[in-house]
Simulated assay, not measured.
Amino acid sequence: MKENERLKATKELEAWKECQRKAEEQTRIQREEKFCEQGKQVGEERNKLKHKSLTRIAASRNLATKGRNSENIFLEKLKEDSIPGPRSVGSIKISFTPRVFPTALRESQVAAEEEWLHKQAEARRALNTDIPELSDLKEEEKNPEWLKDKGNKLFAKENYLAAINAYNLAIRLNNKIPLLYLNRAACHLKLKNLHKAIEDSSKALELLTPPVADNASGRMKAYIRRGTAFCQLELYIEGLQDYEAALKIDPSNKIVQNDAEKIRKIIQGTELKS
Rank of each mutant, 00 (worst) to 15 (best):
E76K: 15
S88L: 08
F101L: 07
K77C: 09
S91D: 04
L75H: 09
E107N: 14
F74Y: 08
V110C: 05
E80C: 06
N72D: 14
K93N: 13
P102D: 15
P84F: 02
K93R: 10
I92E: 05
P84Q: 00
W116C: 01
R87E: 10
Q109I: 11
F74I: 14
P102I: 06
G85W: 03
P98D: 00
G85N: 06
I73M: 07
P86M: 00
I92N: 04
V89I: 09
E115Q: 15
A112R: 01
V100F: 11
F74P: 04
K79Y: 12
R106L: 14
F101H: 05
E80T: 09
I92P: 00
F96C: 11
E80P: 00
R106N: 14
W116V: 00
W116S: 05
E76T: 13
I83G: 01
W116P: 01
F101C: 03
E107A: 14
R106E: 15
T97H: 04
V100W: 04
L105C: 03
L75Y: 07
P84V: 00
W116D: 09
F74E: 13
P98V: 01
L105W: 10
A112P: 01
L105G: 01
E114H: 11
G90N: 11
K77G: 11
P84N: 04
W116A: 03
Q109W: 08
A104P: 02
I73R: 13
S82W: 10
I83Y: 06
F96M: 09
R99D: 00
E107K: 11
D81G: 03
A112H: 14
Q109G: 07
S108V: 02
A111L: 12
E113N: 12
F74G: 12
P86D: 07
P86H: 02
R99M: 14
F74V: 12
S95M: 06
